[in-house]
């Protein structure tokens, strides 16, 4: 009798546990679905709206048309702005790669007191340089330097904002290159720049590729810096030009914006796939000796 009651009690306990487990699973799934929807819906909009004859701010299956793209290609500033974005992105990429590898190599090899503190401080302050807080001083500085409305000026400011992070990441790659490689080259008479070019850069290539892509993506999507520093619409990058797409009624021209957004995002996605295939975004440098 007691045994029976005991066993029924365990059964009850088990079923209660089962129910709890089931409810937990439900809750987790609902939560995941909500989070997923939060990220997926904008992407769906980006895919559907450009092909919709009457795009709105909600996601719906499009009344299919390519007219939005036709309007876009007829807009004189739109396509040119993509070229401007490319100039800014590639320009910054080159500046960042050249200065970043030189700086990280020297910081990795030369022992100076407080080196790590310097690196962390730079990293911490870097977000300020291209951030909103420093925009007024940056603007004044560029005015004094005569670099307002110059794409070169924008490249410099953007690179300055990215460089600390780049140096921080690249230094790790440089650190992991065995010293004996460089010493060996040194004994055969190679000068430091030569060693950097022949030995260190090739070994840090996966790191440099990662940095290059990251730099392009950062600049490609940056709105604030070119918006403030560039005056002529002919020099403005896509991120700024998109901001000017309004209908005559003062409403955002969603047809134009959506089509342009799609074009705007393709290069970045394409580059991600290219580099991922080629270098695999490995975040470790050096070669096992």
């Amino acid at each position: 009798m007691t045994a029976l009651r005991g066993s029924s009690r365990t059964a009850q306990k088990e079923s209660r546990q089962m129910l709890g487990h089931f409810l937990g699973l439900m809750g987790k799934s609902v939560f995941t679905a909500l989070v997923l929807a939060f990220f997926v819906i904008p992407v769906l909009w980006l895919v559907f709206a450009p092909f919709d004859a009457h795009p709105g701010l909600n996601v719906k299956l499009p009344e299919f048309t390519l007219n939005n793209f036709k309007v876009l290609f007829d807009n004189p500033t739109a396509i040119a702005s993509l070229g401007n974005s490319l100039i800014l992105a590639l320009g910054s990429m080159v500046v960042v790669l050249v200065l970043g590898s030189l700086a990280s190599y020297s910081l990795s090899r030369v022992k100076i007191p407080g080196r790590d503190l310097l690196l962390y401080t730079l990293l911490l302050l870097s977000s300020i340089i291209t951030g909103t807080a420093a925009m007024v001083p940056t603007f004044l500085l560029m005015v004094k330097l005569g670099l307002i409305d110059s794409q070169f000026g924008v490249i410099l400011v953007l690179s300055g904002g990215i460089l600390p992070t780049v140096i921080f990441i690249l230094k790790d790659f440089m650190d992991s290159t065995p010293k004996s490689y460089e010493e060996s080259a040194r004994l055969y008479g190679a000068k430091p720049l030569r060693i950097l070019w022949d030995v260190v850069i090739p070994l840090a290539r996966p790191g440099l590729a990662t940095i290059a892509v990251w730099a392009v993506v950062q600049v490609w999507g940056n709105f604030l810096v070119p918006y403030i520093l560039l005056r002529s619409p002919s020099k403005s990058p896509a991120a700024v030009v998109m901001y000017t797409f309004y209908t005559e009624g003062g409403q955002p021209n969603l047809a134009l914006i959506s089509a342009f957004s799609l074009l705007f995002s393709i290069p970045v996605v394409a580059m991600y796939f290219f580099v991922n295939r080629r270098y695999g975004f490995r975040f470790h440098g050096g070669i096992k000796s």
Partner: peptide, 16 residues
């Protein structure tokens, strides 16, 4: 080091 006309073989060989 580059002017001393010495060649060194490192323990890890240091091949590129």
């Amino acid at each position: 080091p580059g002017q001393r006309r010495v060649a060194m073989v490192f323990q890890d060989y240091a091949l590129f």
